[in-house]
Amino acid sequence: MTDPAPGEPTYFERVGGHETFVKLVREFYRGVAADPPLRALYPEEDLEPAQRRLLMFLEQYWGGPKTYSQERGHPRLRMRHMPFRVTPSQRDRWLTHMNAAIDTLDLEPLDEEMMRGYMNHAANFMVNAQDD
């Protein structure tokens, strides 16, 4: 994500800041919790730690607080996801729930397009195995 021009709000600020990303992540994980094949990718019994990590990552990526890097270092998304078998089917399940969560945000069309585009790119980037 590029920095805005001086005096211009960041994407994070433009879409509503922390509360918007809290809602996005909460709604996304509501879908994950109800999707057994996707839920199986999350080894922790409680989804709260995963929720917190995703919230910190997305806020930082979109121009908010740098908490993710302060606590966890460089995101290294693909490396962090390598222990998990992420197939095209799992990617599609992930995107279904993420897109449903984005639907709850009432974003401006350009902001919605940017978010969906990034999520699609990130989901494709995580695929590291083929479906059986």
Rank of each mutant, 00 (worst) to 15 (best):
21 F>S: 00
81 H>T: 02
75 P>W: 07
114 M>K: 15
118 Y>V: 10
33 A>P: 02
88 P>Y: 07
27 E>W: 01
35 D>E: 15
37 P>K: 09
115 M>K: 04
46 D>T: 09
50 A>H: 15
123 A>R: 00
9 P>M: 10
22 V>C: 12
48 E>N: 09
1 M>C: 10
20 T>M: 12
55 L>R: 15
20 T>W: 09
119 M>W: 06
73 G>V: 00
94 W>Y: 14
111 D>K: 03
21 F>D: 03
41 L>N: 11
91 R>C: 01
58 L>S: 04
43 P>C: 03
117 G>M: 11
24 L>E: 02
86 V>F: 08
99 N>Q: 15
85 R>H: 09
11 Y>P: 05
62 W>C: 01
98 M>C: 03
24 L>F: 06
92 D>M: 07
112 E>G: 11
107 L>N: 05
35 D>H: 09
9 P>Y: 09
27 E>K: 08
72 R>C: 03
130 Q>Y: 06
67 T>S: 11
54 L>V: 14
107 L>F: 10
70 Q>Y: 07
100 A>F: 03
123 A>Y: 01
34 A>M: 09
3 D>T: 09
48 E>R: 14
101 A>M: 10
53 R>G: 00
115 M>C: 07
22 V>M: 13
124 N>V: 05
12 F>T: 02
83 P>Q: 08
11 Y>I: 13
32 V>C: 07
108 E>C: 02
114 M>I: 13
48 E>V: 12
34 A>D: 14
39 R>L: 11
70 Q>V: 12
128 N>F: 05
68 Y>D: 00
125 F>V: 11
40 A>H: 14
113 E>S: 14
129 A>W: 08
84 F>M: 04
109 P>C: 08
52 R>H: 13
85 R>A: 11
39 R>M: 05
130 Q>S: 11
25 V>N: 07
86 V>W: 05
113 E>R: 15
53 R>C: 00
12 F>P: 00
21 F>P: 00
70 Q>T: 13
70 Q>E: 15
33 A>I: 03
54 L>A: 13
53 R>V: 01
38 L>P: 04
39 R>H: 07
5 A>R: 15
102 I>P: 06
129 A>P: 05
10 T>F: 04
40 A>S: 14
88 P>Q: 06
82 M>C: 07
106 D>C: 04
31 G>M: 01
125 F>K: 13
6 P>M: 06
15 V>S: 05
62 W>K: 00
9 P>N: 13
18 H>L: 10
55 L>A: 12
87 T>F: 04
118 Y>H: 15
111 D>C: 04
58 L>A: 05
42 Y>Q: 02
52 R>E: 14
78 R>I: 04
5 A>E: 15
7 G>D: 11
56 M>I: 05
129 A>M: 08
59 E>D: 11
11 Y>F: 15
104 T>V: 14
121 H>M: 13
85 R>D: 03
25 V>S: 06
60 Q>K: 00
117 G>R: 13
11 Y>L: 15
64 G>Q: 00
95 L>M: 08
127 V>D: 05
